[in-house]
Each structure stands twice: as C-alpha cells, then as structure tokens.
C-alpha cells in the first residue's frame, strides 16, 4: 500500500496497513534541501524539491504546497513583507482594506495569472508529475477568518465583528469566492486533498465562530467536495470552543493543534471523524527526546482512536532533530489502524 492509497483508504473507512503520516512541513522541508525560505515560498520548483525530499526521507504519505498565509492576499495587491529566510507576513498598517469601501472594487485574482497563487498551482502540477500516484498531493487555501484578517488587518477585523457585521459578511463572501476559485485551479492541476488553514478562527470565541466563521467554512468545505476533492481543516491555536462546529463541517480530516485535546474532539465530533495530530510541535517534537515523541504519539493515538492520522499539532519546527521526525514514521509504521467505525 503506498501513501496515497493508505490515506484514501483510511478516509474511506477501509482497512489500511498502518496509520497514515501527514505532518505539516514547510521550513523543515526547505532546510532539508539547503534552500532559503524566501525561495521556497516564491519558487514552486524549490518547494517541490523540499516536499519530495522530506516525504522520501521521512516516509510521509503525502506532499503539500503550504508555505505562508499570504499567497492570495499578495495577488489581491495587499502589502506583504518577504524575508530571505522566514515566512512572508502581512503588513497590517498598510492593510489592503483599511478603507472598507475598497472591498467593492476588489476583484478575485486569476489563480493562473502569474502571481503567487499561480506559483502554488504550478507546485501542485510539478508534485503530481513527480509523485504520480504514489503519494497524495495536497493543495492549500486560507479559511474565511484568516484571509479576511490578511486583507483587512487582524486587529481591525476583530472589532469589525461588532462594529460592522454586514461588512464582515461581505468580506467573507468575497474570500470564499476567491478561495474556491483557487481550490478549483489546484484540483485541476492534480490536488486530491485541499487543506484549509483558518488560524485566526481560534481567536474569536464560540458566538462569532458560530455566527460568522463556521457557516463560511461550511461553504468552502461543500464547494471543495463539489469539485471532487477531499478537505483537511487546520486551525492553529486553541479551538476547544469550536470543536462541535468544526465536527459538523463534514471535513475528511480535522487537523488539531496541540492546545485542542484529541479526546475532547473525539467526544464532540463522534467516532467517525478522522482526527490528525496533535503532538506538541515545540515542547515535544522539537525539544523532546525520541522517547518523548513516541510516548506523546501513543497518548495522541489513545485519545483519537483508530480514525487517526499521525502528525504534529502544527508545522514541524525547522530545527527539529531528524531522529524525532523519524520517530513519527516509526510510530505510524508500527501502529495498525483497524477501522472500528466506518464513516
């Protein structure tokens, strides 16, 4: 069973030879091929080399095109600061939508128009060409709350929920239209799984999540499913307050950060939901020993149950000891995954 077959079978509730292994690697993968992170984020060939190397060397079941949250915003014309060897970041004091009326003039960028989104689509095509059907290729888009924060400024958006809810709804609608167009381009290029990153959603609390964010995440999830791909949702941070809503989205994979307990997620989302994670990436994966990693993974698996995918709570930090990342593969390889409850 190869990586792609393993993931797809696991998602479908069919027997697999072992637990799938899908940690998020970006800076770690970049360092592995000796590249500078600015090049990894801007040049699809560098990203693909990094992903291929990390997947090969650490026996990952998939490759992924995530690099930073600024691809779509950059193509919209937002101010983005690029660093030579760390991820790009939004410049909030020059936020694209600091003037709310600019939203009416904003157009969804063409994901094949030669910008950063196009670079992401090219990465998908190249990865698909290189891995064929051996490993799953995952594309990446931003979720409604995160992308809206990128365009409006995260501090301002947090107040907009109270000051101007109608504007937030219009902004979220724009974001979902843009992200679905980006997702479609990635799926057409060969992505079989689309990851949605919605880190900012962990900041808002249950009332705003339920009223504003979850319904738009639902539109994204439904839209991606209609395009024929599967969905992973990853929200960085503590999402205890949102677990039920996240579980109702119908995501194929819910990827949890280490602050959100897997046993609580299992209780809130039911036995069928595939949960990914959620080893603490800093205190255990990077700073712990191999034994710490194996013990932590065992705890995660005990909490998640058989419908589990091995990974860290968030990105594998760039200076993680290789021995510790190998421990993830060893754990996945030695753990059978009997589908106790088919979806």
């Amino acid at each position: 069973m190869n990586g792609r077959e393993r993931i797809l079978a696991h998602l479908a509730g069919k027997p697999v030879d072992r637990l799938p292994l899908m940690p998020i690697t970006m800076q770690f993968a970049c360092d592995l091929v000796g590249a500078r992170y600015g090049d990894y984020a801007m040049d699809h060939r560098v990203l693909a080399e990094g992903q291929l190397r990390v997947a090969e060397q650490f026996d990952l079941d998939y490759v992924n095109t995530m690099s930073d949250p600024a691809r779509e915003a950059a193509d919209c014309g937002a101010a983005v600061e690029f660093f030579p060897d760390s991820p790009a970041a939004m410049v909030e004091e020059r936020a694209l939508l600091s003037d709310k009326t600019a939203l009416a003039r904003l157009r969804v960028p063409d994901p094949l128009g030669g910008g950063r989104m196009h670079n992401g689509v090219k990465a998908i095509a190249l990865l698909r060409e290189r891995v064929g059907r051996d490993k799953l290729v995952e594309g990446w888009i931003e979720g409604p709350c995160t992308e809206a924060a990128d365009l409006r400024g995260i501090n301002t958006l947090m107040l907009d929920f109270f000051d101007d809810p109608a504007f937030v709804r219009d902004l979220f609608d724009f974001v979902v239209a843009m992200e679905l167009r980006f997702a479609r381009a990635q799926i057409e290029a060969g992505a079989e799984l689309i990851g949605i990153g919605d880190a900012a959603a962990s900041l808002v609390g249950p009332q705003i999540y339920g009223e504003f964010v979850q319904p738009l995440e639902q539109k994204l999830v439904d839209g991606i499913h209609a395009l024929g791909a599967r969905v992973r949702l990853h929200i960085c941070g503590n999402t205890r307050f949102a677990l039920e809503g996240m579980g109702r989205l119908g995501c194929d994979i819910v990827d949890l950060d280490s602050m959100s307990p897997l046993d609580l997620a299992r209780a809130r989302m039911g036995p069928a939901q595939i949960l990914l994670g959620n080893l603490n990436p800093v205190t255990v994966l990077r700073d712990g020993t191999r034994d710490d990693v194996l013990a932590g993974l065992a705890r995660c698996h005990l909490q998640a149950g058989p419908r589990h995918i091995v990974g860290a709570g968030c990105e594998v930090p760039r200076d993680t000891p290789h021995e510790n990342l190998r421990a993830l593969a060893d754990f996945a390889r030695s753990t059978a995954a009997t589908p106790a409850t088919p979806p």
Binding site: M158, L159, F161, F162, L203, V204, G205, R240, F241
Partner: peptide, 14 residues
C-alpha cells in the same frame, strides 16, 4: 476563563 475571547478583550481595551 474563556468567557471573553480576543474580540471582546480588544473592545474593552478600546
């Protein structure tokens, strides 16, 4: 104790 989240805290700060 998770009665307030970031938006509520920013509102109070403002």
């Amino acid at each position: 104790c998770s009665e307030f989240f970031v938006p509520e805290l920013l509102l109070s700060a403002r």
